[in-house]
Amino acid sequence: MAVAQAAAARGLELKRPSAIPGFGLALGFTLTYLSLIVLIPLAALVLKSATLGFEGFWNIVTGARTLAALRLSFVTSLVAATINAVFGVIIAWVLVRYRFPGRRLLDAFVDLPFALPTAVAGIALTVLYAPNGWIGSLLAPLGIKVAYTPLGITIALIFIGLPFVVRTVQPVLEELDRELEEASATLGANRRQTVFRVMLPSLLPAILTGFALALARAVGEYGSVIFIAGNLPFISEIAPLLIIIRLEEFSYPQAAAIGTAMLLISFGILLFVHLVQAWQRRRFGHD
């Protein structure tokens, strides 16, 4: 409380004069709430890992089982985000550029993974891809096993990440200047050259941002994955699940260390997004 009030008082000095009232109260409440709900609890996580010392932290994070879980989470997320980047761009392109029956409905459905609770998505994907499921039974004769393997994890992460790419690329594509395409065509480029050498480069920052957002979400995803994953240590055990297992063993420092490692990974990804956007502003002069 005292910290928030002090910060509020400091903010008061540093704020530009205004006729609007309520700055102190609103800022005080905002900072108090933010500190109590977000900052202090996250600080507890970092503090708990810090008690391990760097060596202790490093030993836990690079322990065979933890490393396998982190690697699995990251690799499946990377594959899913890449697939989403490709198909997300196609979907955004189709939704923005073409007119066909059912387009608006399809557009609306893209947000489904944002709205559908992850546990519901998880059990639905599992019954679909289980060996006796609608899709699983078609793949089983081909020798392809999806549910309870890393492939299943990837499928769940594709589901959860798709809207990030579509919704990031869509508005940029909508505002893309048609005159550029016309100019390119006038200068003798064929359509493929125009798309790949004129349009896609301008979409690239948005695609990278969507890719990174989908990746960041996928690395930490739990609900939609655990049902389809199989959860075998070293094979199909994701990092968030390992945190829960460590908590159930009351190994709080272990859980905190894995959590901190994951937090660092997602902040690294977000830093990447930030850099991409800065680069985009420099290169294109807008965002």
């Binding site: 739990y222 609900g223 709080y252 997602s266």
Partner: peptide, 19 residues
């Protein structure tokens, strides 16, 4: 940008039996 599991973990670290 925080994993849901970590969102639960932080409160266990604060208020859990060994928090």
């Amino acid at each position: 940008s925080v994993s849901p599991v970590i969102s639960g973990l932080i409160y266990v670290l604060l208020f859990g039996a060994q928090g």
